[in-house]
Write a protein that binds this DNA or RNA. Structure first.
Lengths: 172, 172
DNA sequence: CCCCAAATGAGAATGACTTTCATTTTTAAC
DNA sequence: GTTAAAAATGAAAGTCATTCTCATTTGGGG
């Protein structure tokens, strides 16, 4: 059905068959751009912003526009292939959702992110939704605090330029 | 110390003494604008957007600028007097934080918000932070789903103009 | 191959804030 | 009370992430 041969990047085409399947599942046409973006999402590191993905992709695929990156990431996230994470008013961060569901513990100083999962919490959430007659479709659980490193290095690192509200006092 | 008399709105001044204390606690000067905004926050309904507060306030205080509303709401939220809630990329919503801590269960269709509290979840969160050596400073727990009403009225209401990602399929 | 709906990219538009700055207020000191 | 310095304000401009528009290109069924 699908002959294996090399594309212009000397990458075996069948590397992409898995990615193609995903794009097909979304009911979209298979384009080089989407393959490149999807490949980046799957193989790159998690918690990237759309902007970062765009810049990174631009190096090898200068022809990809950021609109395409945003559009496709949205589609992927709408269909559960990637998870969109937002903290405060900061740009959305995305991650490939092939892993088991998990939540995030974020350091408000260095913005480091630790992933965790906790079945008990998941179950309690379901129970709560039930109590109010809701059908749960999604949830966001983000914990914020200071990571071990930032607890010691008090005030050494400058607070990242974006403000951080949420009960912290930035002016001390 | 403070003589009770009427201000130009024929409202007893001591109505505001509580509000003034809050503003003082923030290290800010007491202005008519801040009193008006704070009064709105305390007595108005919860989960308002900055824009909504601005518009509502404009009726009685046409001189208040939206910059002032945003600035003051931010200050209040930084100091824990109000809680900032964000869902998806939608405008931040604020609520007076005089109540016990609670989280939100939001209907993705009608955007109705139910508040709940669950001590078990709170404790589990602390435990998780501990496990990673984090000092917890804050957290966000937002549950999303369909409220009982919206479960039955399938597709009757148009989806609010702002898209809703998160594993829902808007195009069906 | 051909065609056309789907996809793309460049740039304009949007929308929620934030910042700037010239003017007005507050308030602490007389 | 006056007053002056510091803080606050509002109008408007700026920012920034994201979305939209639209003219052009492209994938893929026929």
């Amino acid at each position: 059905m699908e002959t294996i041969h090399l594309n212009e990047n000397h990458t075996p085409l069948n590397d992409n068959s898995h990615l193609k399947e995903i794009i097909r599942d979304l009911g979209l046409k298979i384009t080089q751009q989407r393959l490149a973006i999807l490949n980046h999402v799957v193989t790159g590191k998690a918690h990237f912003t759309a902007q970062a993905a765009f810049e990174s992709l631009s190096k090898t695929h200068p022809e990809i526009g950021f609109a395409t990156v945003y559009r496709f990431l949205r589609k992927l996230s709408e269909n559960g292939y990637v998870t969109e994470v937002r903290m405060g008013g900061l740009p959305a961060r995305y991650e490939w959702a092939h892993k088991k569901h998990h939540d995030h513990l974020t350091c408000t100083k260095c913005q480091g992110i630790v992933e965790f999962e906790n079945q008990e919490i998941e179950e309690l959430q379901e129970k709560i939704a039930d109590q109010f007659g809701f059908v749960l479709t999604d949830h966001v659980l983000e914990l914020f605090g200071l990571c071990p490193k930032c607890q010691t290095k008090e005030g050494e690192l400058p607070v990242p330029k974006n403000r951080f509200s949420s009960h912290l006092e930035p002016n001390n």
